[in-house]
Design a protein around this nucleic acid. Sequence first.
DNA 1: AGTTGTGAACTGATTCACAGCC
DNA 2: GGCTGTGAATCAGTTCACAACT
Lengths: 211, 211
Amino acid sequence: MAEPTDIPRAVIQRISIYLRQLERLTVDDVETISSAQLGKAIGSSDAQVRKDLAYFGQFGRRGVGYNVPALARALRTILSLDREWRVALVGAGNIGRALCTYRMFRERGFRIVALFDDDPRKEGCTWGRLKVRPMRDLARVVRNERIELGIIAVPQAGAQAVAEQLIAAGVRGILNFAPIRIHPPGGVEVCSVDLAIELQQLAFLTAHLHR
Amino acid sequence: MAEPTDIPRAVIQRISIYLRQLERLTVDDVETISSAQLGKAIGSSDAQVRKDLAYFGQFGRRGVGYNVPALARALRTILSLDREWRVALVGAGNIGRALCTYRMFRERGFRIVALFDDDPRKEGCTWGRLKVRPMRDLARVVRNERIELGIIAVPQAGAQAVAEQLIAAGVRGILNFAPIRIHPPGGVEVCSVDLAIELQQLAFLTAHLHR
DNA sequence: AGTTGTGAACTGATTCACAGCC
DNA sequence: GGCTGTGAATCAGTTCACAACT
């Protein structure tokens, strides 16, 4: 077992993927699975599965494998998905709308409880149950709504300022969709999704594919 | 210099990021930059920058640094961004809409030239210049429009089938937003963006942050 | 017999450090 | 003096291989 802080990000990502697969297996009433089967389903090796799990403890029975519902429960706890996460979304544009309605967020316990945008034309509009609020309300709402995570879905130009405001308001984790690097102070985590870079990488790989 | 096929994905991603930074510098009329400066701007070391570039050739002048516009040009060529990429988007939902209007795709030469969705209520609707077409038209349109890349923005259940249809239609690269692993045959590249996993990773990191 | 858990070996990526050039 | 390009050294992540257990 290891300190949570020195677990590689790749391991955490794979643990998330194992959990998703285990939940599918639970629906199909599969009781038990081996590391080899689980690895095959998600595209890694048996050894990789076992090593990843070993960061967090011992979950299997030798000669048998892993109990599917029990392992799923354990992984949910490890990933802190056994509780609700309250989230602020900044940016009421097209990406914001897509994230707002993304089912899998809600299924996993992520609740977008506040929506911000500084475009005065959007202010006061409602998206489902959410009202678009101006950025000047951010700090107050984050505090009152006990919001822990922020999502940045604004264009590049505004993103750095939004990050600073989220951090100042007390948010502890940020998911950033803007194409900039955010330098958080200690005590704040940032994960970034850079759509243009993903597509560029795909273009490179495709162009150099020997058919 | 190395064969394009054995360049790590991480290197390609960083090269994309260097290019973005260089284009910002070009706008600001910066002529020359050192590996240390470039690295600092995007959060890696000087040695990392030089090693990454070394996969593709020699671009700098010792004692001086790199010429910004020249290096940007070279990186655009390396990444195959010096041409247009024709793209099919499958899934006229919220994520599809966000991708359709995403500026940075267009700025980089990616043109979404066809939009598909099998929901009959959406069929025939238009998004900007794009008409929503049924999946049965996919193969013909991909051929006629000389489409090389596909984006999957449909829910999990349909994603595998969509991938197969795209591949059968002759697409050579796929950007996948559905939460499944796609097993492409040789000659096809897949990159995946898994939004739920990104947010879960953020939750894990945030939960285990020693404040 | 079958499968886990894990130290050891290996592979790949990053950082170091310095020769070579401007 | 300053900075690149690169081999050598280090570090991290993955795979191997087998003892321990059911």
